[in-house]
């Protein structure tokens, strides 16, 4: 299905018009150098104040809401780990019916759901799939730090191949994480929803504008955000943004959108070698040259696949390339 997606309400952010209003305030309890909270802050700046947030259990929930304190300047609800999409479904349905009954004052608020990679790719995948399939008008943001960081760095299905976690330790019989990262954006796109995107806080304008598109369209949107965890990945706390950019430049985490089924890939003309990305993280330090070669090949193959998807969806550009 290649839908026409109405982006007429999309309000683009430029370097000069970055919103300063914060839905989430500083003074939360995230680790030093946490890129996940940084990404969350960017999302909230792009969304604005007229929003209701549903948040899955996880680092972000814990660090922003230790009663009686809260970092949230917008209405926020945390229920449990696996059900954020369902909670958001209920909020959205209630808002719509209350609007229909004339019980809402002002414009209907946006509905935003946050989950980590465990809450999204593992335990909450069913609820996410249900909410996307039902077509609720909400934006789901996965903040992917590639393991269960809140419980102490256990592997998830979103942990990259080869990474060391506390439940995928390398050893004589183990390379570390033995499976390739689950492709949740592709799963989201398979629901034929109007908008899917990947984003990195290293490309902050791109990230915020993807959020702006997600909230501008009618129906479900899914944004998968790369979120460096210095504590869990074994990098210096000031290196988060640098690594966020490197993930994109090495094609480890390509930035793309799927709008109405059409893939749009930001072309990476001179990709850096994957080894540059791997070598600065303690979680990959045990990998051999052969392992790195394998990862490079697979990263190349995945990028080529994505590029093919993008060219399939946009044949006129393919002609231009020839």
């Amino acid at each position: 299905m290649l839908n026409e997606v109405d982006l007429s309400k999309y309000e683009k952010i430029t370097a000069k018009t970055i919103p300063t209003e914060k839905g989430i305030s500083s003074g939360h309890r995230a680790c030093q150098g946490c890129v996940e909270i940084l990404a969350m802050g960017m999302v909230m700046k792009a969304v604005g104040r007229n929003v209701i947030v549903a948040n899955a259990t996880g680092c972000m929930e814990i660090v922003t809401s230790p009663f009686p304190q809260t970092a949230w300047n917008v209405p926020w609800m945390h229920v449990a780990f696996e059900n954020t999409s369902a909670v958001a479904s209920g909020i959205e349905a209630a808002l719509k019916i209350r609007e229909k009954h004339g019980k809402l004052k002002g414009e209907r608020p946006k509905v935003l759901a946050f989950g980590g990679d465990g809450a999204t790719a593992d335990i909450g995948l069913q609820a996410l799939s249900g909410a996307l399939e039902r077509g609720h008008d909400f934006t789901y943001v996965c903040l992917d730090n590639e393991a269960y960081m809140n419980t102490g760095i256990q592997r998830s299905s979103s942990t990259p191949y080869g990474a060391m976690t506390t439940t995928s330790p390398p050893g004589s019989n183990s390379i570390g994480q033995s499976t390739w990262k689950k492709n949740v954006p592709a799963i989201a796109a398979a629901h034929n929803i109007p908008y899917v995107a990947t984003a990195s806080p290293g490309n902050y304008l791109d990230l915020m504008n993807k959020v702006r598109k997600a909230i501008a369209i009618d129906g479900p949107a899914y944004i998968h955000i790369y979120a460096v965890c210095p504590t869990g990945w074994g990098i210096k706390s000031e290196k988060g943004i640098e690594l966020s950019k490197l993930a994109v430049k090495t094609n480890v985490f390509p930035l793309y959108e799927v709008i109405g089924g059409k893939y749009i890939l930001k072309e990476n003309k001179n990709p850096k070698p994957v080894v540059d990305y791997l070598k600065i993280q303690r979680r990959f330090r045990h990998l051999s040259e052969t392992d790195v070669e394998y990862i490079q090949k697979r990263v190349d193959a995945e990028y080529a696949h994505l590029a093919a998807m993008a060219s399939c969806a946009a044949p006129e550009e393919e002609e231009n390339d020839e």
Partner: peptide, 8 residues
Amino acid sequence: MGSAATGA
């Protein structure tokens, strides 16, 4: 729960 929390 989301619905009841939104006042419906």
